[in-house]
Amino acid sequence: SEFQINEQVLASWSDSRFYPAKVTAVNKDGTYTVKFYDGVVQTVKHIHVKA
């Protein structure tokens, strides 16, 4: 599913667990740039983002 900029989502971290994050960019290659609550910004594949 498509997510929008500033949408609150759950994004997987390197430990494969999902954490609350905010979408900061929707990228043309189908990835999302997300910002976790601790301030870390990461680009993740769409399969690693869920509502």
Rank of each mutant, 00 (worst) to 15 (best):
G39D: 04
D38A: 02
A25E: 07
K22M: 14
V23H: 00
D29H: 02
K50V: 11
A21T: 02
E2C: 15
Y32V: 09
G30S: 01
A51V: 09
D38H: 11
N27W: 06
K45P: 11
K35N: 04
E2D: 10
S16N: 14
E7F: 07
Q8N: 14
Y37R: 09
A21E: 03
F36K: 00
K22T: 15
A11C: 09
T31K: 01
V49D: 06
H48G: 05
K45E: 10
I5Y: 06
V49A: 06
V9R: 00
D29W: 04
K35M: 14
H48E: 10
Q8C: 15
E7N: 08
V44E: 01
Y19R: 05
H46F: 11
A25Y: 05
S1H: 15
P20V: 09
Q42C: 15
S14A: 13
D15P: 06
F3T: 03
G30K: 06
D15R: 00
T24F: 06
G30V: 03
H46E: 12
T43S: 07
V44M: 06
Q4I: 07
K50M: 14
K22V: 15
K35Q: 15
N27C: 07
K45H: 11
Q42E: 06
I47E: 14
P20Q: 08
D15W: 03
P20R: 06
Y19N: 03
K35T: 10
Q42Y: 09
R17Q: 11
D15L: 01
H46W: 12
F3S: 02
K50R: 11
T24C: 12
E2Y: 12
A11H: 03
N6L: 06
T33I: 07
S1R: 14
N6G: 15
R17E: 15
V49G: 05
A25R: 08
F18V: 05
V40H: 13
F3H: 05
S16L: 09
Y37N: 09
D38G: 10
L10P: 01
H48A: 09
E2P: 12
V9E: 03
V9K: 02
F3Y: 09
V23P: 00
V9S: 01
